[in-house]
Computed example of a mutant assay.
Amino acid sequence: MEPLIHGILLAFGLILPLGVQNIFIFNQGAIHRKFTKALPAVITAGVCDTILIYLAVAGVSVIVFNFEWLKMLLFSAGFFFLAYMGLVIWKNKPEVRTNQEESRFSPRRQIVFAASVSLLNPHAILDTIGVIGTSSLAYTGYGKWVFTAACIGVSWLWFISLAVFGKKLGQINGNGKFLIRINQISAIIIWMMAIYMGYQLFSFFF
């Protein structure tokens, strides 16, 4: 019972803050007419988190934390991708009319972006590997896998809930202006995270 509760509380603590991954999933729920249209993003984010959590428990944290160049590579890739992603979301003009489906992200594009914000986000990787990986050391055998399953379960539940909540809020305004504002706010937050990531990358050299 202890590994289950520990895993649930820890996973919620890590996933609740407003991060790029959360913003993207919420955004896709808001701009699509049907929840099922946002499933590619939800499923991809869930699968990526599952992989990261499994690797964290498997002990990859030892590799990541022992190589400074790997951290620099993660921050560099994350900075440039977030800057690009913010621009794409800012320029995207979602419409609510059925004849404007082309303005929304295609399933393929959702998968690429969701995978990128999950796997090219140094903070998410370091948090997952550092916190979950380290916490899992308290358990062995069955307890460790219960802890792992709890973390993964919370991750999937959270992404589904985010997309559903986004869809409900996206229905508030029928002329599309509300969705455009959501995009703009999302882009600004993503750019702020890119700047912060760039600052941390800069600190590696000075």
Rank of each mutant, 00 (worst) to 15 (best):
M1Q: 07
P3C: 11
I5Q: 00
G7D: 04
L9T: 12
L10A: 01
L14E: 04
I15K: 06
L18G: 05
L18W: 08
G19S: 12
V20E: 10
N22W: 08
F24N: 05
F26H: 11
A30R: 13
A30Q: 11
A30D: 12
R33W: 00
K37W: 13
K37E: 15
K37C: 12
A38P: 00
A38Y: 06
A41C: 12
I43F: 14
A45H: 01
V47E: 02
C48R: 00
D49G: 10
I51V: 15
I51H: 03
L52S: 04
I53F: 02
I53R: 02
A58H: 13
G59P: 07
V60C: 03
V64L: 15
F67R: 00
E68W: 02
K71W: 02
K71E: 09
S76H: 03
A77H: 01
F80H: 01
L82C: 06
Y84T: 06
M85N: 06
L87A: 14
K93I: 10
K93N: 14
K93T: 14
V96P: 02
R97K: 15
T98R: 09
N99P: 00
N99K: 05
S103T: 14
F105S: 12
F105V: 02
P107V: 05
P107Q: 04
R109F: 13
R109H: 12
R109I: 03
Q110M: 04
Q110K: 02
Q110D: 08
I111K: 00
I111L: 12
A114S: 14
S116N: 11
S116H: 10
V117Q: 05
S118A: 13
L120Q: 06
H123C: 01
A124L: 09
I125G: 02
I125H: 01
V131Y: 06
V131H: 04
S135F: 13
S136I: 06
S136G: 15
L137K: 13
L137W: 12
L137D: 12
A138I: 10
Y142T: 14
V146L: 10
V146S: 02
F147N: 07
C151I: 03
I152D: 05
I152T: 09
I152E: 06
G153Q: 07
G153K: 02
G153E: 03
L157I: 10
W158N: 04
W158M: 08
S161A: 15
S161V: 11
L162R: 08
F165L: 15
F165R: 00
G166L: 05
L169H: 00
G170N: 04
G174A: 11
F178Q: 08
F178L: 15
L179S: 08
L179R: 14
I180C: 13
I180R: 15
R181G: 01
R181H: 00
I182A: 09
I182R: 07
I182K: 10
I182C: 07
N183Y: 06
Q184S: 13
I185K: 01
I185T: 14
I189L: 14
I190C: 01
W191Q: 07
M192K: 04
M193P: 05
A194Y: 09
I195E: 00
M197C: 13
G198H: 07
Y199T: 02
Q200A: 05
F202C: 13
F206L: 12
